[in-house]
Amino acid sequence: MKNIPEIEIENLSITFKIYEKGLIQKNIKTISNLCLKAYKGEILAVVGSSGSGKSLLAHAIMGILPKNATVTGSIKYKGSELTEKRIHNLRGKEICIIPQSVSYLDPLMKVGSQVMIKNNKSCFEKMRNAFKRYDLCENAEKLYPFQYSGGMARRALISTVEQTEPSVIIADEPTPGLDKQMAYKTMKYFRDFADKGKAVIIITHDIDIAVQYADKVSVFYGGTTLETTKAENFIKGEKYLCHPYTKALYNALPQNGFKPVEGFQPSPYDVFEGCIYYDRCDIRCEKCKENIPIYNFPDGSGFVRCINGY
């Protein structure tokens, strides 16, 4: 029997209420039927299309979605429901997020002082140690965000998780703007973190770097998970991946052929029956227009949402 996942998400849907024209409101569903599990001691890499709702997922876990969003389905932390009140007490302490945009830094505050959560000696020590680990010199503490490069700001954001001792870290694109060496160093740090018995969720487009450190990979497209698989399958090669989209993603990497795919991800305005990847898929058939079953892999390592199974 496998232990209880730290974060378990079942059938999550997120709907936004927006104004269309005048006072006419409209609901758009940005995430639908999403399933995800993050275990202790594991790194889960979330990859997939831009605008597929990866960041929204992170914000939904943290309970920081805007007011016009409605969340249905369940998000569990350590086996019990993560209610609004509960996440309010946990976020920033047990569950931490590393935000995606470097514009999350306060432009009017020196970077060193905004990284510290409290102005005391222990927070200062932690900040200084974290900065040292990420090659930010002491001088960098006293600079303002506009004097930082993209990569430096990214490293400052990453260093914020060392202020507390969280049991779950959600990193929303931690590696862009970092050179290869620094990106590997960051991933190594997440690996150490997971090895200490924490759960790490990394949202990323740097698939090639992430799969070398992650345990599992979850593939997102159009607001849902199409496949969850072992990270090593991405290293072994295309034929170990099941879903046609996952394969396309693999083949689009510069080192694997740099092959584009015709067409674009459907927008949340289009109401869909059947497979969300239908119109771009090479092996589509009539059956794909119906309900798509989920096939769990026999070894329990993941699943694929495709009529062709695994």
Partner: peptide
Amino acid sequence: DEITTMVDPITQSQ
């Protein structure tokens, strides 16, 4: 300047 670091590989290639 790093224009495709925030997009997925398929969009990057496109």
